[in-house]
């Protein structure tokens, strides 16, 4: 199912959370809402779910206006940031909940519910946990159970609020790949909220970068990374150095700088204050001689090994690609 968001505005008292948001989510896509905390991404997700209503604007599912439809009738699956598993129910009962609360006419039989729940638990590879209670599970397991529960109602849209936010780094990475594969299997239209650019770049088909209640850019991970539309997007996705240029403030990624021992026409003099040499990349910290600002540079290990810069050495840097907005 496709989602169309048209001219959504939402404020809380004095605070304007969303300003004139327009967005198209094609059917079957996995979309990331990416932005710093307080940018309105969670509010937008909750408006799509029907947990909150916009002050103005419309939400269309497959072209049908659902702005005023109750959350219960939207057939969305929502995975909460802290999972919101029902702690007094077993894993099985949690997943079965959405089926059990259906009106009698459409409620599946107990046997069907059992079959369906076990299918879902197999899908998230946690069938063996059916009789446990949520507090007995690890964070990653809770996350997957929350997902299975959301999928039980056969949602047309899957919404995930910071799905990996509460997990530690290792589990987060595994779950990210797993979610990507799961989406490729199910092809349900999915939107997830994150403040972690790496997460969005790795998992999503499309990234929506948001800031201060507005959409800064929509595009594929490659597009938003390589062709950022605004300085905010550029700064938010990856490390960046700022340079003053005649046209205004220019941005340069750390790997887009050439370092040498001899000056050239456009080079800037500086002192190498720190060398961080672990892994395939070597990171240099250079203090500019003219304005005492620090510049981060990343070199490939081979490049670094050829020149063998030493800490404290006088060097010259030349940006080979400056972006000015």
């Amino acid at each position: 199912m496709s989602i169309s968001i048209q001219h959504i505005n939402k404020g809380f008292g004095q605070f304007s959370a969303l300003r004139d948001i327009n967005l198209q989510v094609p059917s079957g896509e996995l979309v990331a809402l990416l932005g710093p905390s307080g940018c309105g991404k969670t509010t937008l997700l909750r408006i799509i779910a029907g947990l909150e209503s916009p002050d103005s604007g419309q939400v269309l599912f497959d072209g049908v206006d659902t702005t005023h439809r109750d959350v219960r009738e939207r057939q969305v699956g929502f995975v909460f940031q802290h999972y919101a598993l029902f702690r007094h129910m077993t894993v099985f009962e949690n997943v079965a909940f959405g089926l059990r609360v259906r009106p009698k006419a459409t409620r599946p039989s107990d046997a069907e519910i059992k079959k369906r729940v076990h299918e879902l638990l197999s899908l998230v590879q946690l069938d063996w946990l059916a009789d446990r209670y949520p507090p007995q599970l690890s964070g990653g397991q809770r996350q997957r159970i929350a997902l299975a529960r959301a999928l039980a109602v056969e949602p047309k849209v899957l919404l995930l609020d910071e799905p990996f936010g509460a997990l530690d780094a290792k589990v987060r990475k595994d779950l990210r790949r797993w979610l990507r594969r799961l989406h490729d299997e199910l092809h349900v239209t999915s939107v997830f909220v994150t403040h972690d650019q790496e997460e969005a770049l790795e998992v999503a088909d499309t990234i929506v970068v948001m800031n201060h209640g507005q959409v800064e850019q929509v595009g594929t991970p490659q597009a938003v990374y390589d062709q950022p539309a605004t300085s905010f997007v550029y700064e938010f996705l990856g490390n960046v150095n700022a340079f003053e240029t005649p046209q205004g403030k220019g941005f340069v990624r750390p790997y887009e700088i050439v370092v040498s021992r001899s000056p050239s026409t456009d080079s800037i003099a500086g002192q190498l204050t720190y060398v961080h040499s672990v892994g395939s990349l070597v990171r240099l910290e250079i203090k500019r001689a003219d304005n005492a600002q620090y510049v981060d540079v990343e070199l490939g290990r081979e490049v670094f090994n050829q020149s063998q810069f030493a800490q404290g050495e006088q060097v010259f840097i030349t940006p080979n690609r400056i972006r000015v907005f």
């Binding site: 929502f78 909460f80 919101a84 959405g98 529960r149």
Partner: peptide, 18 residues
């Protein structure tokens, strides 16, 4: 009591009484 749990129930189709 977390508001999330109530919202989760609602998003899974439970009415207020359920």
């Amino acid at each position: 009591f977390s508001a999330e749990a109530e919202e989760a129930a609602a998003s899974l189709g439970a009415n207020r009484w359920q």
